[in-house]
Amino acid sequence: MSNGFETLAIHAGQDPDPTTGAVVTPIYATSTYKQDGVGGLRGGYEYSRSANPTRTALEEALAAVEGGTRGLAFASGLAAEDTLLRAVCKPQDHVIIPNDAYGGTYRLFAKVNERWDLHFDPVPLGDLDAVASAMTQKTKIVWVETPTNPLLGVNDIAALAQLAHDNGSLLVVDNTFASPYLQQPLALGADVVVHSTTKYIGGHSDVIGGALITADRALGDELAYHQNAIGAVAGPFDAWLTLRGLKTLGVRMDRHCDNAERVVDLLLAHPKVTEVLYPGLPDHPGHETAAKQMRRFGGMVSFRVAGGVEQALQVCDRTELFTLGESLGGVESLIEHPGRMTHASVAGSPLEVPDDLVRLSVGIETVDDLLADLSRALG
Rank of each mutant, 00 (worst) to 15 (best):
190 A>L: 10
337 H>A: 00
337 H>S: 00
315 V>P: 11
247 K>S: 07
79 A>V: 09
252 R>N: 07
44 G>H: 07
376 R>W: 15
338 P>A: 02
126 G>D: 09
23 V>R: 14
159 A>Q: 07
73 A>H: 04
323 T>W: 11
129 D>H: 13
333 S>A: 08
374 L>D: 03
78 L>E: 08
63 A>C: 05
343 H>K: 05
214 T>D: 02
232 A>C: 10
263 V>I: 08
81 E>Q: 13
251 V>H: 12
13 G>Q: 04
343 H>G: 00
249 L>H: 04
118 L>W: 08
333 S>P: 06
122 P>H: 06
51 A>D: 13
157 I>D: 03
29 A>E: 14
254 D>M: 09
21 G>T: 05
16 P>M: 10
15 D>T: 12
188 L>C: 00
370 L>G: 02
182 L>N: 08
12 A>G: 03
147 P>V: 10
219 L>N: 02
303 F>D: 02
315 V>L: 07
263 V>L: 01
286 G>A: 03
327 S>H: 12
5 F>E: 03
282 P>R: 08
149 N>Q: 13
316 C>W: 06
65 V>E: 06
14 Q>Y: 06
113 N>K: 15
99 N>F: 10
58 L>C: 01
88 V>N: 01
11 H>M: 11
139 T>G: 00
106 Y>K: 01
345 S>T: 15
81 E>R: 14
164 A>V: 09
376 R>P: 00
60 E>I: 14
107 R>Q: 14
366 T>S: 11
114 E>Q: 14
264 V>Y: 07
316 C>N: 09
17 D>E: 14
125 L>A: 00
118 L>S: 00
69 T>D: 05
114 E>H: 15
273 V>L: 04
335 I>M: 04
33 Y>K: 02
171 L>W: 11
343 H>S: 01
21 G>Q: 06
210 G>W: 04
324 L>W: 14
318 R>T: 10
139 T>V: 09
262 R>D: 11
78 L>N: 10
149 N>T: 14
306 A>I: 02
171 L>T: 04
49 R>W: 13
368 D>H: 09
258 D>E: 15
146 T>N: 01
66 E>H: 15
184 Q>V: 03
302 S>F: 11
194 V>R: 06
306 A>H: 10
138 K>H: 12
320 E>G: 08
307 G>V: 06
10 I>L: 14
260 A>M: 06
379 G>I: 12
331 V>D: 12
297 F>T: 00
359 R>D: 05
109 F>D: 01
144 V>A: 00
135 M>R: 08
251 V>L: 11
53 P>W: 08
114 E>A: 12
142 V>T: 04
174 D>T: 04
147 P>E: 02
9 A>R: 06
239 A>N: 04
331 V>G: 12
262 R>T: 03
139 T>N: 03
1 M>R: 09
9 A>M: 11
364 I>G: 00
341 M>P: 04
283 D>K: 13
296 R>E: 13
91 P>Y: 09
379 G>Y: 13
120 F>M: 00
231 G>S: 02
167 N>I: 05
190 A>C: 06
280 G>K: 01
167 N>H: 15
328 L>W: 14
184 Q>A: 07
255 R>E: 13
220 G>W: 14
166 D>I: 08
26 P>Y: 09
283 D>Y: 14
295 R>Q: 03
262 R>Y: 03
144 V>L: 08
265 D>C: 10
360 L>S: 01
246 L>H: 04
26 P>S: 01
293 Q>W: 04
